[in-house]
Design a protein around this nucleic acid. Structure first.
Lengths: 156, 156
DNA sequence: GACATATGATAAGCAGGCTTACGATTGGGA
DNA sequence: TCCCAATCGTAAGCCTGCTTATCATATGTC
């Protein structure tokens, strides 16, 4: 079963995504932050009080990768690590007012980017692409769990 | 004109792609190389004798980013930098026999990954996704050129 | 209660992107 | 001819990911 288009899509996805990530990175920088930190703040805005491990799992990040992001965010006074009263190992994460203001302001940028990048795409194509991405994501998550039996039961 | 799906697609694309890149990275590592180095060798296989600047432009990479990739590839004896007889500033790039063998062997891996990740996706969805990615890539290239007027005429 | 194991966070070290800045060479004009 | 801008490659320094390993704390079992 030869399906060269599938191979091509993997390749294109990896390459296009690097371009897109870099582009978003530049746009974020114009507003004094970075794509990764933006992502953390967005997630925190939706759900505060998480500990680092939970947030890392939600974001498909390694805890250590998140920890260093949080270091930078904290040093800019954009997030807060509060000690968990019930677990002395853990912190609970909160946005500061500054952090909240920043991420709120960035919503417009997100819309801008989407319009720039996808302004000409048709609604149906976007729907379809979302579905395909979702499939891919699911497959990768499955494969990764196979190899890294982190926690038997996963919060799917 | 509110189009929340577009925003969602940008987000999903950035996130899914990180997962995919990491996954491809792992698979590449199982064969003793990396995704980025794999990409360089693939490109060189198609077209040898390029100089670094041309290859970087083709790959949408900054010359310095490519230079360090090439350093690693060269130290593994997978590529060769030959002095350009006509321009003493430049090198011309070639795969070594080892490099060629490695990248040839990886073709199977590429197919494997594509089947794993997209095995369940329909042909039409893949076609559509490719088109959408292509649109995105074009848009980003345009935007980036606006800001970075590297070379007026670009090899589109 | 004590010990083994699991878990939260971090440290060290690497790869791969970037921006900015620089030396060396090329090549075109005055 | 000589000089200056453009180009090729690189260095330094940053951010974001990773893997692997470690420390402190929780937790479950005997």
């Amino acid at each position: 079963m030869k399906r060269p288009l599938r191979r091509e899509l993997v390749f294109q996805l990896v390459e296009t995504s690097r371009l897109l990530r870099t582009y978003v990175e530049q746009r974020a920088r114009q507003h004094g932050t970075t794509r990764a930190q933006w992502g953390v703040m967005s997630r925190l805005r939706r759900q505060e009080g998480l500990n680092q491990a939970s947030l890392a799992e939600q974001m498909d990040l390694q805890p250590i990768s998140l920890a260093r992001l949080l270091d930078r965010l904290q040093s800019q006074n954009l997030i807060e690590r509060r000690e968990d009263p019930a677990d002395r190992r853990a912190y609970r994460l909160f946005l500061t007012p500054e952090g909240r203001a920043l991420v709120d302001g960035l919503d417009a940028v997100r819309t801008e980017i989407a319009d720039e990048i996808l302004g000409e795409a048709e609604e149906a194509a976007i729907q379809s692409a979302l579905g395909t991405l979702s499939t891919i994501r699911e497959q990768i998550r499955t494969r990764s769990e196979d190899k890294a039996p982190a926690s038997a039961g996963n919060a799917a």
